[in-house]
Design a protein around this nucleic acid. Structure first.
Lengths: 115, 115
DNA sequence: CTACATACCAAGAAGCACGATGTATGTAGA
DNA sequence: TCTACATACATCGTGCTTCTTGGTATGTAG
């Protein structure tokens, strides 16, 4: 049998996935599969979003009205559901980003990583 | 009736509570009530740990062997359960702190807060 | 025709923070 | 004395999010 393929250690902080999805889409409308790829690229392989986390999150965000979906052709020439930010989504992203800054700064204070 | 007492906005990132508890206790053994107070002080009121989050977390950490508990007199002259870090707890804290740094840095990259 | 990358989705389980609620004691003030 | 408040512990149920695992389908390269 093959050696256990590394712990994988995803373990995302709750709530940050939604925020990062909004952020990636804010830069440019994307389909789900590409969002996961981009997140992994940008974070230099630290963040590896599972599909079982990604798609529920996308549906969640669409349901709340932060995202709008549309079937289009992807860059690879295949049909894909392209998500883009709604106006409410932009506002939500701004709020969550601000909250993230406050929170991570506070945690930084506690952990002595401040400054 | 009194005006609604401010949103309170706790909303901790899941998983970080354990890490911060370990960190606060690493600085000095504390009892539960004091841990919550300290966290609030250090974070300048950004982090407000509910008792319904705190005590389960303490029991969880003790069960895993990261914390050791002992009944002693508090600074206020009352009996309190003082928690201190075990050897395993120190190791765990180091791991979680390192992981936090990697994670928050990665999220920072995504959010454009980098540098 | 097999494997792989692309692209979507669902179901079940587990973990965790939260809100509400309860107990008890010591102290300060009315 | 009676009341309020701070200290100090704790449990329970709920809801949300993430993870794991599995499944569908298409195009392309070998």
């Amino acid at each position: 049998m093959p050696p256990p393929p590394e712990p994988k250690a995803a373990g995302l902080l709750q709530g940050t996935l939604d925020m990062m999805i909004l952020q990636v889409i804010a830069l440019e409308p994307q389909h789900g599969y590409a969002i996961a790829t981009r997140l992994q690229q940008i974070s230099k392989d630290v963040l590896q979003v599972q599909q079982g986390s990604l798609y529920p999150a996308l549906h969640r965000l669409e349901k709340k009205g932060w995202l709008a979906a549309e079937w289009k052709e992807s860059e690879q020439g295949r049909m894909a559901k392209i998500y883009s930010l709604t106006k409410a989504g932009k506002k939500q992203l701004a709020e969550e980003a601000e909250n993230w800054r406050r929170m991570s700064a506070a945690i930084g204070l506690v952990m002595g990583t401040a400054q």
